[in-house]
Design a binder for these strands. Structure first.
Length: 641
RNA sequence: GCCCACGUAGCUCAGCAGGUAGAGCACUUCCUUGGUAAGGAAGAGGUCACCGGUUCAAGUCCGGUCGUGGGCUCCA
């Protein structure tokens, strides 16, 4: 009996039934292609090359060129690593799970003493032995009882737990050499197909990510189809290290964190503070231009305020402990909203005032676990670019659209082009009527669609008080950072008994929107530093130009140029030290200053300057006036259209 | 919070068979007056994170505290 097999939409060929996918590939594909094939896809399922084909089948080949192919390589690498670890440590370890992840793979082991870096080298060597032995990965489907018996016999208790959680009656096992693992597959045909791998680091990880469970020992590694791709990836890791905002923050003197001051508390150094002040000015300008009004509110408030707002019920764990003042308990603010509401309530409000848009660069403090702190990205004290908007129900959709529009325009000004947008809907535990939730969720949806933004729905991930839109920015390392958030709130207006007088003369409850565009200025700054690798665009550069003289014969002239630029509002520094030009250029370059103005006898004689750009190029000699004209536009804080 | 690693001059790091500290860069001074990424010399700078223990003797060994870094489901 024969069956018809087609590969990658090619013409069907008749082959004997029961032929393996590998044989089919070998028969049908070119020599060149078949060496690259790691697995096949039948319908939507990835299958091993050893899969027997019993009926007419259309196959798709999977190679390392596709993400699925890389996944298979990495997943197999995880198995090979597990085998190596068992070979070396024997019954000392139990295997748990070992998936492929975005840039590699890991495997979690239960082991009393952690792995050392020296162990990693040993394991790598053992892995290489296993690769050299070119052991086939063989798949076997067995009943859950059989599998359980097998792993129980091996003393692999975590596997038993996993088997218990799997639906259905059968599970699949993969074996290479004497190592058997419970696994869905697929895998490489044999261990010899793993061509390039490297173990990267050890880390603790809880069983199933739950801190109530045992701490396992995780080994991270990565694998690629060839050594070149691996090298490229390792170089990329080096490059991202260079862009690390903590390193650049120190080198460029942007910010610092001090033990004596406390973890997670940011000290903005002059250059960082200058950038922040520019960001804030841009932000304020745009908010005024978009009909927002600015508020300032205190750092602390009586505990009762947080009682009313519900923060003590829902947020107390994230708040700093209370302090006693005149026998009254005060607590530092984790959010700005109750203060804005207090301002709202200073008098009776009319529907005619709506929408009310109030913004504040509000500094809040939140208790983060020490292990979660990370440079500027996760801190304990930060400034939100916060705003609260009070609207009538019929204004909601327009307001959300306005916010989105302002949001995207502001982010784009900083050169961010990649986003992930999430719409989070009603969670199980929540307040507010079904009708309100539905109306608000629809308003968010329509506004997103109107702005032409594609989004994903995060079902049930909304805050208990209302649906929200979250926007994440992608940084150079591919990490996503949540910056913008837009949340509808049915809760606080209720808790604070907010009202306005409607057209009908009766009291109504306003709808409240919380929103932050950059989120936290600290985090946003961190993302910006990595995004620009410290080379800020002219309008944000803390030092825009630096004057470099060639020798002290030009000191006086250089001083004059310096004053001229300073008066024109350019952020300018001078380096008139008795050093060689090369040396000064190098330092200015390392400080990533956009323009170096070089002044020698020539320039002094012609009453000009020569500008050297950050990228090494030179502008022709020109007068200071001409230079100012040329950079004027780009050196100022931008204005949105 | 938990697991691991780390904590020596402003920065990057060496010192580790326990015998009271070293380099490069940065900083200061002097020499050099030099055209597009480091000219030369000298000097200053450290209670080796903090607290306690072992020892004749601790940056070095042990314990604790604080801090930093990498992780803590992308589910067989």
């Amino acid at each position: 009996m024969t069956i018809n097999i087609s590969i990658d939409n090619g013409p069907a060929q008749a082959l004997p039934a029961g032929v393996s996918a590998a044989e089919a590939v070998k028969t049908i594909c070119s020599n060149k292609t078949r060496k690259k094939v790691l697995a096949v896809k039948i319908g939507n399922d990835l299958k091993d090359l050893s899969t027997p084909l019993q009926a007419d089948t259309a196959l798709e080949t999977i190679t390392a060129a596709s993400p699925a192919g890389l996944d298979i390589i990495r997943h197999s690498a995880a198995h090979i690593m597990a085998q190596a670890v068992l070979d070396i440590f024997g019954s000392e370890v139990q295997v748990t799970i070992g998936p492929s992840i975005t840039n590699g793979f890991y495997y979690d082991f239960a082991k009393d003493s952690p792995f050392s870096t020296a162990d990693l080298e040993k394991i790598e060597l053992k892995m290489q032995e296993i690769v050299n032995a070119d052991l086939p990965f063989s798949r076997q489907v067995v009943s859950k009882e059989e599998a359980a018996a097998l792993f129980e016999n091996k003393g692999q208790n975590y596997k038993l737990e996993i088997i218990n959680d799997i639906a259905g009656n059968t599970v699949s096992l993969y074996q290479q050499g004497d190592f058997v693992d419970l696994c869905r597959g697929p895998h490489l045909p044999s261990t010899g197909r793993l061509r390039a791998f490297k173990l990267l680091k050890v880390a603790g990880a809880y069983w199933r990510g739950d801190e109530k469970n045992a701490m396992l020992q995780r080994i991270y590694g990565t694998a690629f189809n060839d050594a070149k791709a691996l090298r490229t990836h390792l170089r990329l890791l080096e490059e991202t290290k260079k862009r690390d905002h903590r390193r650049l923050g120190r080198e460029l003197e942007l910010f610092t964190i001090n033990d004596q001051v406390g973890p997670g508390l940011i000290l903005w150094q002059p250059k960082g503070a200058r950038i922040r002040s520019l960001i804030e000015e841009f932000w304020k300008n745009e908010h005024f231009r978009h009909d927002y009004e600015l508020l300032y509110t205190p750092q602390i408030a009586k505990r009762g305020l947080w009682q009313t707002s519900g923060h003590l019920d829902f947020y107390a764990d994230d708040m700093f402990s209370p302090m006693e003042v005149d026998e009254v308990s005060y607590q530092i603010k984790p959010m700005n909203c109750p203060f804005h509401i207090a301002i709202y309530k200073t008098r009776k409000r009319s529907y005619r005032e709506f929408p009310i848009r109030w913004c504040e660069l509000g500094t809040v403090y939140r208790y983060e676990r020490t292990g979660a702190l990370h440079g500027l990205m996760r801190v304990r004290g930060f400034t939100q670019d916060d705003a609260h908007i009070f609207t009538l129900p019929e204004q909601l959709e327009d307001e959300i659209f306005n916010i989105l529009d302002l949001n995207m325009n502001i982010l784009q000004t900083f050169g961010f082009k990649e986003y992930e947008v999430y719409l989070s809907t009603r969670p199980a535990k929540s307040v507010g009527s079904d009708e309100n939730w539905e109306r608000a969720t629809n308003a968010l949806k329509h506004a997103l669609e109107k702005r032409g933004m594609s989004y994903e729905i995060d079902p049930g991930e909304g805050v208990f008080y209302g649906p929200k839109i979250d926007i994440k920015i992608k940084d150079v390392i591919g990490r996503s950072w949540q910056c913008s958030t837009i949340q509808v709130d049915f809760n606080l207006p209720e808790r604070f008994a907010m009202s306005y007088t409607g057209e009908d003369g009766h009291d109504h409850q306003p709808i409240m929107i919380h929103r932050a565009l950059m989120g936290s200025l600290e985090r946003f700054f961190g993302v910006l530093i990595e995004h620009y690798a410290g080379a800020f665009p002219l309008w944000l550069a803390p030092v825009q130009t630096i004057i470099l003289n060639i020798s002290d014969a030009q000191n006086e002239y250089a001083q004059g140029v310096y004053e001229q630029l300073r008066k024109a509002g350019i952020r300018v520094e001078k380096d008139l030290r008795n050093e060689k030009l090369n040396y000064k250029i190098r330092q200015a370059q390392l400080n990533k200053i956009p323009f170096m103005l070089i002044i020698g006898d020539q320039e002094m004689a012609d009453n000009t300057i020569t500008a050297r750009l950050r990228d090494g190029k030179n502008l022709p000699a020109m007068t200071v006036g001409e230079f100012l004209d040329q950079i004027k536009e780009d050196s100022c804080i931008p204005t949105l259209d």
